[in-house]
C-alpha cells in the first residue's frame, strides 16, 4: 500500500486555469486571416498532493499529453499558472530550473524511440548523472542500483549491451531506470506499456507501482485505457478537447461514471470476456475539429443527453459527491 504523504500541507503541484493554445496554419494563412487556434489545454485546474498518483484519461487530442508536458515545463503555458512546491514553474531559470529538471522526469511511450541506439545501456544511464554533475566515480554504483530498482536481474550483464539487444520489456525498464536515477519526486508516465506485448506489460506495470510506492513518488499516468489507469492510480482525471470532464476516485469512475463522456469511455474498455455487452456506445461518432469546437459544452455534439443549455453555457467543474464533474446534468 501507499505510504502516507510525507507532509500534509501544500500540494506538490497546483495547476490554476492552465492553458496551452497553439496557433495552427503558417504565416501565409495568418496573412489571409485564416489561421486558427487549437486549445490543447484550456483552463485546466487541479492539485496534485505529495505521493499521489493521478491518471490522465482520454482519447488522442484530448490534451492529456500536453498537460503532462506543461507539468514538466517542456511547453510554456499560454495562460494560467502551474505552481510546484509553491513556485511558479514558468519563472524557473538557471540553477532553479536545473534542479527542477532533476526533480521531475518523464517515462516515454516507446522505449525504442526514447534511447539513442548507438549508446550502451551504461551510457544511456550515465547521461542524466553527467548532466546533473554527479562525479564520475559514483556513476557505476548508481547505474547498477537503478537497474536493480526496476528489477532487471543481474544488472551488470546489461551495461555493455545496446538497446537492440534488449527486449521491449527490458528496455522499458531501462527507460524507467533512467527517469529514476536522479531520484526525482515527480514522474509523468505517458502510455508506458502501450508498445509492449501483453505477457510483459504486467511486469512493467508492477515495477512501476512498486517503485512508486517504495520511493513515495508523485506520479501522472497518461492513458486512454481505464483498465490500465485503474491498476496504477487511485485518482483519475477524464479530459476531452482540452478540458476536464470529471475528476475523482478511480474506483468510483469505473463503477459509476457520472459524466456522459466518462460513461462512453468506461463502456468502451475492451474486456477479455466472451459474455459482454455489444450495445452501441452512448456517444456520437467522430470527434469535432479541434480548431472549431462546439459552443458551450465541448462534448455536446456527441452527447446523448445534450439539451439547450449545453449549447449556450460552458459547464463549470462542480462538486458531485466524491468527485467533480463538468456537466449541466449535475
Amino acid at each position: 500500500m501507499r505510504p502516507p504523504a510525507t507532509d500534509t500541507g501544500e500540494p506538490l503541484f497546483s495547476i490554476r486555469e492552465a492553458r496551452l493554445h497553439y496557433r495552427v496554419g503558417g504565416a501565409l494563412s495568418a496573412l489571409r486571416g485564416r489561421s486558427s487556434v487549437v486549445k490543447a489545454v484550456d483552463g485546466v485546474s487541479f492539485a496534485i498532493a505529495r505521493g499521489e498518483s493521478i491518471g490522465l484519461l482520454g482519447e488522442s487530442g484530448c490534451g492529456k499529453t500536453s498537460m503532462g508536458r506543461l507539468l514538466l515545463k517542456l511547453e510554456k503555458p499560454t495562460g494560467g499558472e502551474i505552481l510546484f512546491d509553491g513556485e511558479d514553474v514558468s519563472r524557473l531559470k538557471g540553477k532553479a530550473l536545473r534542479r527542477y529538471r532533476a526533480r521531475t522526469q518523464l517515462i516515454f511511450q516507446n522505449p525504442f524511440d526514447a534511447v539513442n541506439p548507438r549508446f550502451t545501456i551504461r551510457a544511456i544511464l550515465a547521461e542524466p548523472l553527467e548532466n546533473a554533475g554527479v562525479p564520475r566515480a559514483g556513476h557505476e554504483a548508481r547505474i547498477v542500483d537503478a537497474l536493480e530498482l526496476v528489477r532487471l536481474p543481474q544488472p551488470a550483464q546489461y551495461l555493455d549491451r545496446y538497446p537492440h539487444q534488449l527486449s521491449g520489456g527490458q528496455l522499458q525498464r531501462v527507460v524507467m531506470a533512467r527517469a529514476l536515477i536522479l531520484q526525482p519526486e515527480f514522474v509523468v508516465a505517458d502510455e508506458p506499456v502501450s508498445m509492449l506485448d501483453v505477457s510483459v506489460r504486467a511486469g512493467v506495470l508492477n515495477v512501476f507501482r512498486d517503485v512508486r510506492d517504495r520511493l513515495g513518488l508523485t506520479a501522472i499516468y497518461i492513458s486512454h485505457d481505464l483498465a490500465l489507469v485503474r491498476y496504477v492510480c487511485e485518482r483519475t482525471i477524464v479530459m476531452y478537447l482540452g478540458k476536464v470532464m470529471e475528476d475523482g476516485p478511480t474506483e468510483d469512475i469505473v463503477h459509476e461514471p457520472l459524466h456522459p463522456y466518462s460513461k462512453a469511455l468506461v463502456a468502451a474498455v475492451p474486456v477479455p470476456n466472451p459474455h459482454q455487452s455489444h450495445d452501441p456506445l452512448p456517444i456520437g461518432r467522430g470527434a469535432p475539429d479541434p480548431r472549431n469546437p462546439p459552443s458551450g459544452c465541448v462534448f455536446r455534439d456527441r452527447c446523448p443527453h445534450a439539451f439547450d443549455r449545453c449549447a449556450s453555457e460552458v459547464p463549470a467543474l462542480r462538486d458531485a459527491g466524491t468527485r467533480q464533474v463538468a456537466c449541466h446534468l449535475f
Binding site: V200, N206, N273
Partner: peptide, 19 residues
C-alpha cells in the same frame, strides 16, 4: 495471458502476473 492484463470487470485488488 489471462492473468497478465487488467480486466475492468474484475476486482480492483488483483495483482497482474507477467509470464
Amino acid at each position: 495471458l489471462r492473468n497478465a492484463f487488467p480486466d475492468l470487470q474484475g476486482a480492483a485488488s488483483g495483482v497482474l502476473t507477467p509470464i
